[in-house]
């Protein structure tokens, strides 16, 4: 029984990161109607930037959250303005190929700069953990989860209680609505994209103290983010959070009780089952016309 609760807890903790990365993806999809196939790679870049900054400045990665967020908001804005924006009026295919190209670009760029080796950051609390009711809560995982929760709460406040946030929500439901609210939609595309990218990067940041950093690390996370978004319903932030935790649990249960190397398989199988049996759940919300 102890193992079981431990397994569930581990799943929930990693689910926090999935939720953050996936929320970014769903935000971008909602507002720009672009499926960002480079989401995992932005997460990977966030991990490297955190790694370098933390080593260079000698600062704990979690204390860099704000700095990394700012860097990636700026970066995301530029990527949207100079690349993504050029393709918004073109077929979906084009945007997909563009973000795919960006994904390969970032992956190989980091490969060229840092090589394929796995890097990690030694934090003093890496192996420390908290024992609550027989369940071990590893410090870095717990911190990662807490940062994720705080980030999602902040996002929720932003989307609900600021004018810009409300405009973004409106435009993710209906792009005309936002224009009616007098918000420049070009600007909003940039903002939504950069927030989405920031979420990916900070999601990556929270992983650094307990996860390896390597150029291909984003591939699986990007895929998971899509799975989460699809399960939760497109453009549905709450749905994304719930399904992120669910995915985390499925993954950790498969790893514990089926086979460690099949943990990803469990997630994909659930994904495919949902595609087969609940496709209406996928289409719910948007894009029926």
């Amino acid at each position: 029984m102890g193992t079981f609760f431990q397994t569930i807890t581990n799943g929930i903790l990693i689910g926090g990161v999935y939720a953050v990365v996936a929320t970014g993806l769903t935000l971008i999809f909602g507002v720009l109607n672009v499926a960002n196939f480079a989401q995992g790679e932005f997460m990977m870049l966030g991990m490297y930037v955190t790694l370098f900054l933390s080593r260079g400045l000698g600062v704990d990665p979690y204390l860099l959250t704000f700095l990394v967020a700012v860097i990636f908001i700026a970066f995301g804005y530029l990527v949207e303005k100079f690349l993504i924006h050029q393709t918004l009026s073109k077929p979906h295919e084009t945007q997909m190929l563009l973000t795919l190209g960006l994904a390969i670009f970032f992956r190989s760029l980091m490969m060229v700069i840092c090589g394929p080796n796995y890097q990690s950051l030694a934090v003093p609390y890496r192996l420390k953990s908290l024992l609550i009711g027989g369940v071990l809560l590893s410090y870095p995982r717990l911190l990662s989860f807490l940062v994720a929760v705080v980030l999602i709460i902040l996002l929720w406040l932003f989307l609900n209680y600021t004018e810009l946030g409300r405009a973004i929500r409106a435009s993710s439901q209906n792009s005309k609505a936002a224009t009616l609210m007098g918000i420049n939609s070009n600007w909003m595309y940039g903002i939504a994209f950069s927030i989405g990218i920031m979420l990916a990067a900070v999601g990556g940041l929270t992983l650094v103290p307990f996860y390896y950093v390597f150029p291909d690390v984003g591939v699986y996370f990007g895929l998971i983010a899509f799975v989460v978004v699809v399960l939760g319903g497109l453009g549905d932030v709450l749905g994304a959070i719930v399904s992120a935790l669910l995915i985390g649990i499925i993954e950790s249960v498969t790893a514990q009780y089926v086979a460690l190397d099949l943990s990803h398989l469990g997630v994909f199988l659930v994904f495919i089952l949902v595609l087969v049996f609940r496709p209406q759940g996928l289409l719910r919300g948007r894009r029926s016309s």
Partner: peptide
Amino acid sequence: SVVLRLRGPYFTLSTIAACEVVRILLLH
């Protein structure tokens, strides 16, 4: 027959996922 029913990027995603699944199985 499962995923070509859906529009947009789902097909692309599913092909990525399916390829991962096949590789995981080959490795397992």
